[in-house]
Nucleic acid binder design. Structure first.
Length: 315
DNA sequence: ACGGATTCCTGATGGC
DNA sequence: TGCCATCAGGAATCCG
């Protein structure tokens, strides 16, 4: 299921394929997959240029413009810098261009981006001209060179919407979205965990911190030595700082391996990620702890399947 | 107001 | 082999 590292990878692998191209048609094959107030026909009528791609939390953005912009060099990969302070990145035709492009436009109603939430099974691929829709294709963006961007989503939970400054103000999810884990200080992170809710429930809450899902919640808690059910406010500043550092470490390591492919997730080039081979906790309930050799415990925390080591992780 | 439970959806999986 | 029940999961919504 695409979380922060997977969405970042999709943004990075999508950009060289579509930057500089105009969207000339938007086909919505499943009504529920398109949200928001701006209609798909409205976007198509603008014939917008895709300036670049990026991410905020688990939201994937295609940044749009009315002005032409250059095409990327043929067949070149976008290098990814190591500095955590640069995230989230903006991937444009020339590679990594800036920290984060503005979503503001000339007017409040100007459509300045398409936002995709992939949820569990959403995928974005670029196909040659005339490729017909597949069984799970929900939205197709036709580009000016004939190629087609497919939004495939088996479970129909994913969604796309056209974003304008005025539209953003009416989008609850966007307004409540918490800060990026890669942009916060340890202190700012710790300050958001003063609730009595389970620390895992807080990690999964997008208004507390943006981009974490079940995989990176379990993995960061394991690496920080914290049991998932522990109330946030029972944890010391030091342990929360350790959790923040573990989270950043695991997110960056996963981005470095193009994310985790459990079942459906693929990059925008159709490749699987490799970080699923580095899991210590997620999906390993009942198996042997890779650190101490004891059996990993399983349970449900915050309504999610959860695995942890009763020896390596403490309340 | 807060937080836990339920709901949406469909493919994969396991038991009989 | 085939069928049915169960599970997975993010976030909106329902409910106590």
């Amino acid at each position: 299921m695409p979380e922060l590292p997977e969405v970042e990878t999709v943004a990075r692998t999508l950009a060289p394929q579509i930057c500089g191209r105009r969207i000339v048609a938007v086909e919505v094959l499943n009504r529920g997959s398109w949200q928001g107030t701006a209609a798909p026909e409205e976007v198509a009528a603008l014939r917008p240029v895709i300036r670049g791609t990026g991410r905020r939390g688990k939201l994937l953005f295609l940044y749009l413009s009315q002005k032409a912009c250059p095409l990327p060099p043929e067949g070149e990969e976008i290098p990814v810098p190591d500095e955590a302070s640069l995230w989230p990145l903006f991937y444009g035709a020339q590679g990594v261009e800036q920290g984060r492009p503005p979503l503001e436009g000339e007017s409040p109603d100007e459509v300045t981006a398409l936002a995709f939430h992939l949820r569990m099974t959403g995928r974005l691929f670029v196909y040659p001209a005339d490729t017909p829709a597949e069984k799970h294709t929900r939205i197709i963006l036709d580009l000016d060179d004939g190629r087609r961007v497919f939004f495939d989503d088996a479970r129909k939970f994913g969604q796309a919407r056209a974003v304008s400054p005025a539209g953003l103000e009416q989008w609850d999810f966007w307004k409540k979205l918490g800060p990026e884990p890669l942009e916060m200080t340890d202190e700012a992170f710790a300050a958001r965990f003063s609730s009595g809710r389970a620390v895992k429930a807080l990690l999964l809450d997008q208004s507390v911190v943006a981009g974490v899902g079940n995989i990176y919640a379990d993995e960061s808690l394991f690496r920080a030595g914290i049991r998932p059910g522990t109330p946030g406010r029972a944890l010391s500043r030091q342990r929360l700082a350790k959790l923040h550092r573990a989270l950043v470490e695991v997110l960056l390591a996963s981005i470095g391996e193009c994310g985790s492919s459990i079942r459906d997730y693929r990059t925008a080039r159709g490749d699987v990620g490799a970080f699923q081979n580095r899991f210590f906790a997620y999906g390993r309930a009942g198996k042997t702890c890779l650190v101490c050799g004891r059996k990993l415990q399983s349970g449900r925390v915050a309504g999610r399947a959860t695995a942890w080591c009763p020896h390596c992780q403490k309340d």
